[in-house]
C-alpha cells in the first residue's frame, strides 16, 4: 500500500519547467529521499504534495487522498512538516511554542512532555527560542512537526547547516519514528544523509528524475566493474572483474601478497555526477 503516489507531475513557473513528468510511489513505512541540488525542484514537489502549490499537470495522492486536499483540517492532522525555514516564536520558550501546537492539534498536556523527552530537550524547556543554538532550534522544530504523532512526515533539508552531533541526534529520532510506523519523505542534497537514512532515493536534476532505487542497488547498477587489490609491497592494482583477474588474484593470494581487496563502487555523490554531469551544491 502506497502512502504517496505521484503520477506525471509537471510544474512550470512563467513557462519555465520546474518539474518534468515526475512519477514515483512511496510505500507505507518507508524513508524515501529526494536528492538534488538547490533549484532542482525538490521543494516545489514538497509544496505540491502538501497542497501549498498546484501542479501544472499530473496528479498525486498522499495518505489515500488527492494531494490538493492536504490543506483540509482532517488531512493536516495526519502529516507533519519540517522545512529549513520553519518558523518558531522567538520570544516564547520551547514549552510555550509546543503549547501552541498542542492547542492547535487539540492534544492532551502529556504530549508536550512526551515530545520534549523524544527530542531530549526536557531540561531546556523553559529556555526562550532566541537563546537556542541552531541545532536545538531544529530539534524544537522537529518536536512541533511530530507532536501529533503523524502518519507521514515531510522533511525539507532537515539537517542543513547542523553539526555532526546534532545531525546524528535528528537521524536517531527519525529512525525511531520510522520504526514506529511513520512514513518519511525527505529532501536533501546531503548524500551521506541519504545513504544512512533512506531505504530508497530518487535523484532529481533540473526537474527530472534521473534514477530511483535503494542506495545499494544504485551503487550496484552504476559500479564500474573493477576491483582494487592492494599488495603488501604497497603497490595497488585496479583489475577488471574477469577470469584473467581471478587467476591473477589467486596467484597473489597463494603467495600471501594481498593486503586488501575491494570492489570499486561509486558513492551516491559520484552516481549523481555521473547521471547529471553536475556537482551537488
Amino acid at each position: 500500500m502506497n502512502t504517496i503516489s505521484v503520477q506525471n507531475i509537471q510544474k512550470s513557473f512563467a513557462g519555465k519547467p520546474a518539474l518534468k513528468d515526475v512519477s514515483f510511489d512511496i510505500p507505507k513505512g518507508e524513508i524515501f529521499g529526494f536528492l538534488g541540488p538547490s533549484g532542482s525542484g525538490k521543494t516545489t514537489l514538497l509544496k505540491i504534495l502538501t497542497a501549498q502549490l498546484d501542479p501544472t499537470s499530473g496528479s498525486a495522492t498522499v495518505l489515500d487522498k488527492p494531494a490538493k486536499l492536504m490543506q483540509k483540517t482532517d488531512q493536516k492532522r495526519r502529516f507533519g512538516i519540517l522545512t529549513d525555514n520553519s518558523g518558531l516564536y522567538e520570544r516564547l520558550t520551547i514549552e510555550e511554542n509546543l503549547e501552541l501546537f498542542r492547542g492547535l492539534y487539540d492534544l492532551p498536556k502529556s504530549s508536550i512532555h512526551k515530545v520534549l523527552n523524544f527530542v531530549n530537550l526536557t531540561a531546556d524547556r523553559k529556555k526562550r527560542i532566541s537563546v537556542l543554538s541552531k541545532g536545538m532550534r531544529q530539534r524544537v522544530t522537529l518536536a512541533c512537526a511530530i507532536i501529533h504523532e503523524p502518519e507521514m512526515l515531510f522533511l525539507d533539508e532537515p539537517t542543513s547547516a547542523l553539526d555532526p552531533v546534532n545531525t546524528a541526534h535528528i537521524h536517531k529520532g527519525l529512525r525511531y519514528l520510522n520504526e514506529n510506523g511513520t512514513t518519511i519523505f525527505l529532501t536533501t542534497h546531503d548524500m551521506t544523509e541519504a545513504e544512512t537514512l533512506c531505504e530508497r532515493v530518487a535523484i532529481l536534476h533540473k526537474g527530472e528524475i534521473r534514477a530511483i532505487g535503494a542506495p545499494a542497488e544504485l551503487k550496484k547498477t552504476h559500479r564500474d566493474g573493477t576491483l582494487t587489490v592492494e599488495l603488501t609491497s604497497g603497490q595497488s592494482e585496479r583489475l577488471p572483474m574477469n577470469e584473467n583477474s581471478a587467476t591473477q588474484v589467486a596467484n597473489w593470494m597463494s603467495q600471501g601478497q594481498i593486503d586488501r581487496i575491494y570492489t570499486n563502487e561509486l558513492s551516491l555523490g559520484d552516481i549523481f555526477i555521473k547521471l547529471t554531469g553536475s556537482e551537488l551544491v
Partner: peptide
C-alpha cells in the same frame, strides 16, 4: 513579524484554518 519569521506558514500547516 509572523510573515518575516515564517511562523505564519508554520501555522498554516497545522489544523488551524
Amino acid at each position: 513579524e509572523e510573515k518575516e519569521r515564517n511562523t505564519l506558514r508554520s501555522l498554516m500547516m497545522t489544523p488551524a484554518s
